[in-house]
């Protein structure tokens, strides 16, 4: 037994050799990763910016440039990049048209759909106090049924001027944005569901409502701050 152990010890590699090899491998791999990161950094950043811009421009067609803000939990907002993002802050985008005037605000929202959370981006216009467009950020709804929210013309027509006025105290929406059964939309704050895709349609309504309830009371009182493009 003892002899076996000695034999094993004699066969095994000295620790120094193992450390040397691991060190060598780590050095080579570190170099490769840093190289890859440096090479692709600009392209990745560009891609991400283009993707965000495209999503915002889709919901706010008048927009030409965007700035990223956070709404602070205590009220008010600040531009991203100035220090740490505080906890509980909600991100949104201010979009400006060609003349540098505020074209609208885009924000994300999410709600549980049929298969998974449906994440959407919606555009809000301060002049009419309404939602003027939606786009899907991510979803896993059944193709052919749930993903009709991207293509169904009647459904998308809900979001040309969806009412999202605040109440008198500016603390919450005057009327909750709500998805109603297909063919029974009567008020401008209601969304006419797609027949056959009611659950996904409801998720869109809930996502807009939840996000707007949190965000708009903070943004609307401080709109002046956004209007100047900095």
């Amino acid at each position: 037994m003892n002899a076996d152990l000695h034999q094993l010890a004699a066969q095994s590699t000295p620790t120094a050799a193992m450390i040397k090899t691991l060190g060598l491998v780590s050095a080579i791999c570190g170099l490769i990763i840093v190289g890859a990161y440096q090479l692709t950094f600009d392209a990745v950043a560009d891609n991400k910016r283009i993707a965000t811009e495209r999503a915002v421009f889709k919901v706010l067609p008048a927009a030409k440039s965007i700035a990223e803000f956070v709404a602070l939990p205590a009220g008010g907002m600040e531009k991203i990049g100035t220090g740490e993002t505080p906890a509980g802050a909600v991100k949104f985008f201010a979009a400006y048209d060609g003349d540098g005037k505020l074209a609208g605000i885009a924000a994300e929202g999410g709600a549980k759909g049929y298969a998974d959370t449906v994440r959407i981006m919606f555009g809000y216009q301060p002049e009419c106090q309404c939602v003027v467009g939606i786009g899907v950020v991510s979803m896993r709804e059944t193709p052919g049924i749930g993903d009709k929210i991207l293509t169904d013309k009647d459904f998308l027509a809900n979001f040309t001027e969806l009412d999202a006025k605040l109440n008198a105290e500016l603390k919450a929406l005057a009327n909750e944005v709500k998805t109603v059964k297909h063919g029974s939309k009567t008020n401008p704050w209601q969304i006419d569901a797609i027949s056959g895709a009611t659950i996904t349609s409801r998720a869109v309504g809930k996502a807009i409502n939840d996000s707007a309830q949190v965000l708009l009371p903070k943004i609307v009182p401080a709109l002046e701050q956004l209007k100047a493009k900095s």
């Binding site: 590699t13 090899t21 491998v25 080579i28 791999c29 890859a36 090479l39 990745v44």
Partner: peptide
């Protein structure tokens, strides 16, 4: 041979990271 699996995994992970960046780009 004692550390070969660790070496393989580190090497594979490196190239996966590189490919990951490349696809993002």
């Amino acid at each position: 041979k004692e550390v070969r699996i660790a070496v393989y995994i580190v090497i594979i992970a490196t190239f996966v990271t590189a490919v990951d960046y490349a696809i993002q780009a």
